[in-house]
Design a protein around this nucleic acid. Structure first.
Length: 483
RNA sequence: GGCGCGGUACCCAAGUGGUAAGGGAGAGGUCUGCAAAACCUUUAUGCGCCGGUUCGAAUCCGGCCCGCGCCUCCA
């Protein structure tokens, strides 16, 4: 059974077969950099990160492109988001873009999202956007009006196909467009004339102006991935109008299919309502990281399916923390046990059916990237492992290493929810703090021998306050940093 | 109003025809000086409600109730 992907275009799961064997071209709509990212952004980019990682795990060579929008994304009142922020902060718009682009990368790095291979910026691709707009004008799909250029949606028969709507339905219930320069209310800007006070402006065949929001994604995706490519991803809220417009522009310009698989992640909710900047119910990632380890946030996100909504609450996040800790503890114990097994030269064992677990894990991921089920499989392995470690069976070093490899590949490399190196907290690495902690543990074990429990607990509590948790095992005391 | 999605235990959340995954929390137990960790047992005769199809439905069909998203910027 091969990989199946839910395609928004056909509204069903389809067998995944890339346009070019062994190669996947993938574009994901990136952030508009005018403020810090929130949990919702985290869900989107972590979701697509796992998709990229899994495709690579399957052996595909993936070219992953994700844009940075730093111009042209207009608000209701026609003001550019970035310009608005720059006025509020009294700094140059490109400073705004730079500050929040860095903030975005910082947050995503913490979440363990692998960086895109190419992160093109809209302002760096003005030429391409003008060229695309020009093509559309020449072919009659777009028209100039008063220094701006609009796409004529009535010229594109499939407009609305992706989002399942038609122009007539859209006419009704839509606010009457007062701007008379458009021929149809749904027509969208490819190029906008810059008013005199508009700072971000570029020369064009239609005078000074700036590109519309939708055109950047068409221009940049096709530049780096070709006129037709495999996967285009983004948040569900970008399905219309953004992605609809991208299809209209790209197909009209090239007369070729644009994207084979459209993928949309669902949104993060708070008390059932969408987390968004306009509602003001958002939690920035930076704030979340003050309370929760970034990997806990990542784990929380991946415990639900990317196409499901995910309800954010402290209760749920705390639950995720405890759950992830269980996996981390297990992996740490496995690594500790490996050292013992090697020292004891234990004979070969086969206690855990890793192959069966791996198959179930892959079946889950092959089914449209079902990460919750894949994670459940990791927990099942953890249970098997802990049962074995709890019993008096002596698992061999090589079997333990297979378990460690299992977690390394499927938990670290594909899902990215486990850190590369579990902190064992049992061996000194020359670090004086480690030596001191070990000294305290030895001291405590000495007083425990003498049954001086109060003194023993004083040391344990003191270490706990210092962020060190200790566990007394059958064959010795281990410690770890408190999460 | 149009289009779409969802309602599964105390919380989060898989499951789309074969008799309810997983995690957290709670309860009891094993282990332990006590903790911690881990393990064991336990917690939905039932998956919004009402009908229907079927040997069999959380899953399919119809109706209803509720929530949400998009249609205007949003990951």
């Amino acid at each position: 059974m091969g990989l199946k992907v839910y395609n928004t275009l056909t509204r069903q799961k389809e067998e995944f077969t890339p346009l070019h064997e062994g190669f996947v071209g993938m574009y994901v709509c990136g952030p508009t950099v005018y403020s810090h990212s929130h949990i919702g952004h985290g869900k989107s980019y972590v979701s697509f990160d796992v998709i990229v990682r899994y495709l690579r795990y399957l052996g595909y060579k993936v070219l992953y492109v994700q844009n940075i929008t730093d111009v042209g994304h207009l608000l209701d009142d026609g003001e550019d988001r970035i310009l608005k922020q720059s006025k509020a902060d009294r700094i140059h718009p490109m400073q705004v873009a730079e500050i929040f682009a860095r903030s975005y990368f910082e947050d995503m790095d913490k979440l363990g999202a692998v960086r895109a291979d190419i992160s093109p910026r809209a302002t760096g691709h003005i030429t391409e956007q003008i060229e695309l707009t020009q093509q559309l004008v020449e072919k009659g799909f777009a028209y100039e009006a008063n220094g701006s250029v609009y796409f004529d949606v009535r010229k594109f028969a499939d407009y609305g196909k992706l989002s399942g709507r038609n122009l007539n339905d859209m006419m009704e219930g839509t606010r009457v467009e007062s701007r008379s320069e458009k021929r149809h209310p749904a027509d969208f800007a490819l190029w906008k004339k810059a008013e005199p006070e508009h700072i971000m402006r570029w020369p064009s065949p239609w005078g000074e102006g700036f590109p519309g929001w939708h055109v950047e994604c068409s221009a940049m995706s096709m530049k780096y991935l070709g006129e037709s490519f495999d996967i285009h991803g983004g948040g569900l809220d970008n399905q219309f109008p953004h992605h609809e417009c991208e299809i209209a522009q790209s197909v009209s310009a090239t007369n070729k299919p644009f994207v084979k698989y459209w993928m949309h992640n669902n949104l993060v909710t708070v008390a059932g309502q969408k987390m968004s900047k306009s509602l003001g119910n958002f939690v920035t990632l930076k704030d979340a990281f003050k309370k929760y380890d970034p990997l806990v946030v990542r784990f929380f996100i991946l415990q639900s399916h990317y196409r499901s909504t995910l309800d954010f609450s402290d209760e749920a996040l705390n639950g995720a923390r405890s759950g992830l800790e269980k996996l981390v503890n297990t992996l740490r114990n496995v690594h500790a046990e490996i050292a013992k097994a090697e020292a004891e030269k234990r004979p070969e064992t086969r206690e855990i059916d890793l192959q069966a677990h791996r198959t179930r894990y892959r079946d889950a991921m092959d089914d449209d990237f079902n990460t919750p089920q894949a994670i459940a499989e990791l927990f099942d392995v953890a249970k098997d492992v802990n049962q074995a470690l709890n019993s008096y069976k002596k698992i061999s070093a090589s079997e333990l290493q297979s378990v460690a490899k299992f977690f390394q590949e499927l938990g670290v490399e594909v899902l990215g929810i486990l850190a590369k190196e579990p902190s064992l907290g049992v061996s000194a690495d020359g670090n004086i703090q480690v030596e001191l902690i070990q000294l305290l543990i030895d001291l405590r074990n000495e007083v425990r021998q003498q049954k001086l429990w109060a003194l023993s607990d004083l040391i344990r509590d003191g270490l706990k306050k210092a962020g060190i948790t200790i566990e007394d095992k059958k064959d010795g005391t281990v410690w770890k940093k408190t999460t």
